[in-house]
């Protein structure tokens, strides 16, 4: 418990550190700070006095530490500031896009778990057979294929040619938008995201399972007459799950940082596009909000991974007590 509290404390300090570093880096970035406000063709009409007034209005003319302190005060009250571009509260902008991004990434991750892990385990039990080799090669090809290419092929087949699934968007422009319709909209983008992850996780599951199956413990169990099925569950499945849980910590922040390419191709209203747009247009409050959000999730993810690993594998808990 003490260890957990300590880790939570460190996590909090890390998030504060991330926010401060982001603040300093954003401030030091070269470029016109009014770029977020309007394109130069528009701001060119402002003279120096008007530019200064605008910078003042946007709070860009005050010292860095003052702005940081104010920003921290705001965060404690749940106020992440206002977007320079839309003038809307950052928290509102993030919240609006967080749900679609989570939806897409969780759906993709679920597909990966449902199809990727069993595929890896299946392959691990048939090492060297032609079918296993063929599957591995297929997975490798899938992993190497650019996701925009996969997306365009799937769009062409399922939406344009066969008209089975919606081409883009999260909701239909008209008509009912019940759960089934939502799922249909999710199908293509989530599959595209999943196909890439699928190859990765299947290979991971296969490798860890294979290691477990060829370990001394597995050999010993077999000689003691334990069935192959039990050997598999004990020595192959469990190590794969631990490896997966550790990875989860790395995957969690990717759930919110979004996939720019997939979101753009499928017109998906997520965080990925917001991130890119905010960085390019120097919309500092939005970039800062997103960085702190992903930073917090990275930290939370690694905490969570530790905890899950502890639940699955008693050795982790033993390490804790030592």
């Amino acid at each position: 418990m003490a260890r957990l509290l300590r880790r939570v404390g460190v996590a909090g300090a890390t998030v504060i550190g991330v926010s401060l570093i982001t603040f300093i880096v954003l401030d030091a970035l070269p470029g016109d700070p009014l770029a977020a406000y309007a394109p130069p063709d528009v701001t060119r009409r402002l003279d120096d006095a008007q530019r200064e007034a605008l910078a003042h209005e946007l709070g860009l003319d005050r010292p860095l530490l003052v702005r940081y302190a104010e920003w921290c005060g705001g965060v404690l009250r749940g106020d992440l500031g206002r977007s320079l571009r839309s003038r809307r509260p950052v928290a509102e902008e993030l919240a609006r896009r967080l749900i679609p991004t989570l939806e897409l990434n969780l759906a993709a991750f679920a597909l990966v778990l449902i199809f990727g892990l069993p595929l890896g385990w299946w392959a691990a039990r048939r090492p060297g057979t032609p079918l296993e080799r063929f599957t591995s090669l297929g997975l490798l090809a899938l992993y190497a294929a650019p996701s925009f290419w996969i997306a365009m092929v799937l769009q062409h087949l399922f939406a344009v040619r066969w008209g089975l699934l919606p081409l883009y968007g999260r909701t239909p422009p008209s008509g009912p938008s019940g759960p089934l319709v939502r799922l249909a909209h999710l199908a293509l983008p989530a599959s595209c995201l999943a196909l890439h992850g699928l190859a990765f996780y299947a290979r991971l599951a296969r490798n860890t399972a294979r290691e477990g199956l060829s370990s001394w413990h597995a050999l010993e169990a077999r000689t003691l007459g334990v069935t192959e099925r039990r050997v598999f569950f004990r020595h192959a499945l469990r190590p794969s799950l631990v490896a997966l849980a550790t990875l989860l910590g790395l995957v969690l922040p990717a759930f919110v940082s979004g996939s720019v390419l997939i979101e753009s191709l499928f017109g998906w209203p997520g965080l990925g596009r917001l991130y890119v747009q905010a960085v390019l247009s120097r919309d500092f409050p939005v970039v800062l909000g997103l960085t702190v959000l992903t930073g917090s999730l990275t930290v939370a993810g690694s905490l969570l991974a530790d905890m899950i690993a502890g639940l699955i594998d008693p050795r982790w808990r033993a390490g804790d007590e030592r």
């Binding site: 008209g163 081409l167 883009y168 422009p173 191709l265 499928f266 017109g267």
Partner: peptide, 18 residues
């Protein structure tokens, strides 16, 4: 008048085709 936000040109063309 339905204004569909679609940034990607290849998807736009596919949307016309479909």
């Amino acid at each position: 008048l339905e204004l569909e936000v679609l940034a990607d040109y290849s998807t736009r063309l596919a949307a016309l085709d479909a």
